[in-house]
Design a binder for these strands. Structure first.
Lengths: 204, 204, 204, 204
DNA sequence: CATGAATGAGAATTCATTCAT
DNA sequence: CATGAATGAATTCTCATTCAT
């Protein structure tokens, strides 16, 4: 077979995977994991039920793949290019990026996040596949800043989760209108407040 | 019938309810709501499936009753006496308290939290009834500290959620062993790290 | 034990049986056999579920007993006294009596009759216990009339069922308003028409 | 896709529906609606339980579809050619026809009739759609005979139901062996007896 | 005898997954 | 590879019946 043919095939496969993933995202967002039937996912993706199983082992793998797909989506931009070394710039960049992700896909992920909490195995799989890859960059950065004496002596693992937890809750509240007061905070305000707290909280 | 007889009956009913609730809590904690079958709950409670339905209308009501039951248990911790004014002491106290709560009941509530997220109405009800009352104390304290010039100009609402989000994620990770590295952090270490970051992050 | 005591006991038993039967009738009428739960029957009868089983072997026996009870109700009056020998008078008397029975209890029996059709065993039990005892009187009368030369040579069994079938359908239609035209027929009209047809149809 | 392929698919679907319908008819006839489990129906149809739900929304829809199916089959007998004018011939013809219908499908319809009685809406719908169209022919005939002075002054509506009720009960008893004595009556005997009674009962 | 809590066998229905076409 | 009909395990909830009090 010719290389082009292989590429074509691979590309087709990738396209089809993405097509299914987007269909799944739509239905998962509407129904949550358990109430999302493969039949509906197939319909939303414009393919047949059986085809799903040519690309994913089972429904659970589909969920994992979907979350991976979405989580990595915008982070590519960041990980691709050069990261700023200035802590203020970097924190702002990361928080903005995550904030946009949640703004853009949060409504998709929210109902699914629910199910994840309830499922031990799923939780572990996603922590390994999604959370760790993303957070390790931040951990390393914090460690570096500690080493060069910019940041105080703190644990990079805890510090990273501290930022992530704070970020998640604030962005979630902004997204869901659960707390009416978040209606008055602009996205930038929230990012600024968080950056301020964590910068001062971590720098010497 | 004699009053004692009536009391006995009522007591039996209450005992049986609690028995079922504890069985349910056990299975819900292990499996989450969906994977917790009535069969398993019955077995865990040491009664038959049918008996569940003599005390609860359906599986969902059982979940709600369980949340109520747990909430009653934990609310005691909150309604304490005088709060210290020193920020370091206060933050440490609050974080320790929350940490104990999560340590004590988190494994029970985690899978329940899941179902709550998936249910808009329940989510709102519980945010109003549980989250806001608890967090308002912290909000007021932060506002006071800002007013007296101890804390920098920051939004108390966002700041409070920042602490809560950070706290939740870190304690959850400590609780679940999702991240093996949290095995090496003592509870005190986590609390100290959080207090340090937020204190420095908020004080002038 | 004294006879009076025995009588008292028997009477109590009979009273309790009737009490349950009436409760059952009420619920069967409302819900039909399958949807009538023993719990509801017990409540309607003002006793507990368990007590039902002290007087009836099971729910089915309760149904059978109820139908027997109601069917025999008004027929007692007829079977008790002297029956008129004149065919016109007798037919009118019987039809009026059955008509009153259906008018009075039909709404009770209707939903139950439905279930009977569907259940082979029940059907047989009730045919033996209810239909045969009632119809045998009419059969004998017809046979007598044939013997004395008043009626033509016809089969008394078939003739009896012919009257019963005609009666049932007409009275049922009058009762249920299934056919709006039956609203214009008085009870007497229907009885007269039936008597006329069958009298002329059977007499020489 | 080719037209033949489409036809093949449609045909398969129809065949499968019929297959399920026949299985259902068999079990409904044997057990009645309530005691007919989907498991038994599936077995009788030679398919799995789940497949039933690919063709029918629920058990009730399956019942309705079965009634429709049977009705279609039997309606053919009715839409015949010219009816004889002679009362004796006509009555004999009609009774024979109905008798054959009941003989052929009665065992199937009997348990279904049961459920119909229990359901007010279904009852009305079927009385209008099935009973009235069939009986109106007989009503008109009787009216005509009255007008030409052949029959006595009687109400055609009541008279028609009188024949129908008598017919139904007698044929049902012949069909079901509920009354052992009906084993000795040939179909013709019953028809003759009925014709005799009604002819004499209605003619001047 | 009366009670009513406990029982547990079922029953309808759903849906992820398979596999022949 | 795509399809979608068939599968059947699994699940919640009901309710007649029992039996200790």
């Amino acid at each position: 077979m010719l290389p082009t043919s292989i590429n074509f095939k691979e590309q087709m496969t990738e396209t089809r995977r993405t097509q299914i993933l987007l269909g799944a995202a739509q239905v998962f967002a509407e129904k949550g994991f358990h109430k999302a039937t493969t039949k509906k996912i197939a319909k939303a993706a414009g393919i047949s039920e059986g085809t799903i199983y040519n690309y994913f082992d089972n429904k659970r793998e589909l969920l994992v793949a979907m979350i991976e797909f979405i989580s990595m989506q915008s982070l590519k931009n960041i990980l691709g290019g050069e990261l700023p070394q200035d802590p203020h710039e970097l924190f702002t960049l990361i928080l903005r990026d995550r904030q946009q992700l949640i703004q853009g896909y949060g409504y998709l992920l929210a109902p699914v996040v629910a199910e994840i909490f309830a499922d031990t195995e799923l939780r572990e799989e996603l922590y390994q596949k999604v959370v760790i890859p993303i957070s390790s960059h931040l951990e390393k950065y914090i460690q570096t800043q500690i080493d060069v004496g910019q940041f105080r002596q703190l644990d990079p693992v805890i510090a990273t989760r501290t930022i992530m937890g704070a970020m998640l809750l604030n962005f979630a509240l902004k997204l869901t209108n659960l707390d009416s007061r978040y209606g008055y905070f602009s996205d930038d305000t929230i990012v600024e407040q968080l950056v301020m707290i964590f910068l001062k909280g971590m720098m010497k």
